[in-house]
Write a protein that binds this DNA or RNA. Structure first.
Length: 117
RNA sequence: AAAGCUAGCUGGACAGUCGCUGCCUAACUUGUUGGGGAGAGGAAAGUCCGGGCUGCAUAGAGUAGGAUGACGGCUAACAGCCGUACGCCGUGAGGCGAGGAAUAGGGCCACAGAGACGAGUAAACCGAAAGGUGGACGUGAAACGCGGUAACCUCCAUCUGCAGCAAGACCAAAUAGGCCAGUAAGCUAUGAAAGUAGCAAGGCGUGGCUCGCGUCACUGGCGGGUAGGUUGCUUGAGCGCAUAAGUAAUUGUGCGCCUAGAUGAAUGACUGUUACGUGUAGUAGUGCACGACAGAACCCGGCUUAUCGGCUAGCUUUUUAU
């Protein structure tokens, strides 16, 4: 299993944002940008506006990390930023998981379509 | 038994699957794998006080500014804690209290009252009048009196440099820029080669030409320093037990223990069994939900704020029984 690579620099974040491709759902906005590296790179944005307490923000980050580690295939060469729009808790877990799965399927389809052209 | 007061403890348990961050250890392909072990709190929070630590500043003294304010003690220090006294609240166990000086000085004193910190109303008296003397009754917490207020300034006593781990220290790529030194190549002779000798000495500008100067290029070196990395970074005013001194806070002695160290930031997610509590359905067995406040960021001592409950100890009041 490949180790999850995180986006860190402000430059990396803003380059993904300025690519202006995204999918949204009730809980998330997912920005993405194909990259040259042979693996997925992810970044999370959990604003203080979404959840005031540090505990809640940490929980959401951990759940997102968990999802990326399990579900993202290593062959997907793309930079992704998951931005949380709405606070979610433990009871929302299955719903959150579903949303992320559908979003990443969309991204996969889009990418394979564009590479096929 | 009920209702309370104070102090302390606790912050469900076990197992499985998939992971994360340090540490120890073994192997080799030197960053991977295997094994072992560790990994949030009583408030980690607010950043309100006080220290340690680090850098800068600093002869000494004073002023300004800031903080504190019964008395005595504890402490590294404090606005903390302990004891005593005083005031208020409570039947009581107990709780609360920024509490020195008003004869150093300034300011302020609502409503009522003529007048509120300096003034003057009525009667009466003086006077031709203007006005003056006079100070009752009443109001009010207080009416010239060693009045109140210092939680208004102030005075007195004591303390007080400034900044903070993004402190500070070290290593240091690329690019640009700084300083210093230098000019490659080539040709000829000799020699087996190494080498030696001689010629020649980068481009552009200045100039008739040479030297020189400037600039560019290249080579080498030096120093600053960015990204990044290492360190600071967890063994400490440390924790537990026993014992001695002390009313106590606390301190001494002995023995034992090692208990997170991340850095765009690990400590997680899911599942099962089970304990406890609450709600709900039911006659019941039982079923179904829900699980307080909240996440380390250099480290300690406090304070304040948030918090579903549970347990332990001491004490108080009321009722009942003996």
């Amino acid at each position: 299993m490949q180790k999850l690579i995180m986006l860190k620099k402000t430059d990396e974040f803003s380059s993904v944002f300025s690519f202006k491709k995204r999918f949204s759902s009730p809980f998330f906005v997912v920005h993405y940008k194909p990259n040259q590296a042979q693996h997925v790179q992810v970044g999370f944005v959990v604003a203080k506006k979404v959840a005031k307490l540090a505990v809640d923000r940490n929980y959401m980050r951990r759940v997102l990390r968990e999802f990326c580690r399990h579900e993202l295939s290593a062959t997907l060469c793309v930079d992704v930023i998951i931005q949380v729009q709405k606070k979610f808790e433990n009871k929302d877990y299955s719903l959150v998981n579903q949303e992320l799965v559908t979003i990443f399927n969309k991204i996969q389809n889009k990418l394979s379509a564009s590479s096929g052209q």
